[in-house]
């Protein structure tokens, strides 16, 4: 053993300290909080009451289902667009595909708040102008009702995430040996056959990674939601993260909000374990 015990501790203790202080301890306190009626100042233990009330709270249930619906739609769209982008930019390796890569990825550099403002301008001002110029009612009044608000967040999120997911698909597409594809071409395989019988099976692990990355990030979405619709109109586009934030820091029902936070944690954990099980199964 080259590293002695006290040296080993010196290497790892700072990390242990940060993880315990910032994540583990707050998490444990949080579990306790979720069984109290804390308002930030006083708190007393009330058992499972928060959870019982939560499951009858129509605002919570609505935001929860909205989050599920949002995650479902955006996961499909992001992966579809990301995969198509990856296929486009891996066709050749020239200046055009390189600049396409850059352009597709660029939205991912911008933070959620700024993205929300950019799209708020597009959905309100630019869409209004399109509606007026071409007499298209479709472009009228975006973000002013719950359904255009919902699709607005979806569009924003697809714009932000597709380039990111594209990179994952690219790295798996590039790992496919060139001569496999060349052999298929020599055998007379069509482009569609190459896609479905060679590329698609090789992409299976990329699908698992991308699906769960997008799922986790859409479940936790907050800033885009805040800057684009701020949950409006009438809390109809408020997703679960924003629900937790507003309940805790606007209404000061911290124990109650923490119970919702625990439910969010359980959802993310269940999803992650399903992913782990799936990828183990394939490898095993």
């Amino acid at each position: 053993m080259l590293i002695k015990k006290h040296q080993y501790l010196a290497f790892i203790l700072p990390a242990v300290f940060f993880i315990l202080l910032i994540i583990v301890i707050p998490f444990l306190i949080g579990i306790y909080y979720s069984f109290t009626d804390s308002n930030g100042l006083r708190s007393s233990f009330i058992g499972w009451k928060n959870f019982e009330v939560l499951f009858q709270d129509s605002t919570f249930l609505q935001s929860f289902w909205l989050t599920v619906k949002f995650s479902f739609v955006s996961v499909i769209l992001i992966n579809l667009v990301g995969l198509v982008f990856a296929l486009i930019v891996t066709r050749h390796n020239n200046r055009l595909t390189k600049s396409l890569r850059t352009i597709f990825f660029m939205p991912n550099l911008i933070g959620g708040i700024l993205l929300g403002f950019i799209w708020q301008f597009i959905f309100t001002s630019a869409f209004q102008a399109i509606a007026a110029a071409f007499h298209l009612d479709f472009f009228k009044g975006w973000l002013s009702n719950s359904s255009t608000g919902f699709w607005g967040i979806v569009i924003l999120f697809v714009w932000q995430m597709s380039g990111y997911i594209m990179l994952i698909y690219i790295s798996f597409l590039n790992a496919i040996p060139k001569n496999t594809i060349q052999a298929a071409v020599l055998d007379g395989a069509k482009a569609t056959q190459i896609f479905f019988f060679i590329k698609l099976p090789q992409l299976a692990p990329a699908f698992t990674i991308s699906l769960f990355l997008t799922l986790a990030s859409s479940f936790k979405l907050y800033e885009q939601n805040l800057a684009l619709t701020n949950g409006g109109p009438y809390r109809s586009t408020e997703m679960i993260s924003m629900y937790i934030y507003n309940t805790a820091f606007v209404n000061f029902q911290q124990g109650y909000a923490q119970a919702a936070g625990i439910i969010l944690f359980l959802c993310v954990t269940i999803v992650s374990f399903i992913q782990l099980a799936l990828s183990r199964k394939r490898e095993g």
């Binding site: 998490f27 909080y33 986790a216 936790k220 937790i244 625990i262």
Partner: peptide, 11 residues
């Protein structure tokens, strides 16, 4: 695995 929103209140 722990989402930030699940620990932000106690933190």
């Amino acid at each position: 695995l722990i989402p930030f929103q699940s620990i932000m209140i106690p933190l």
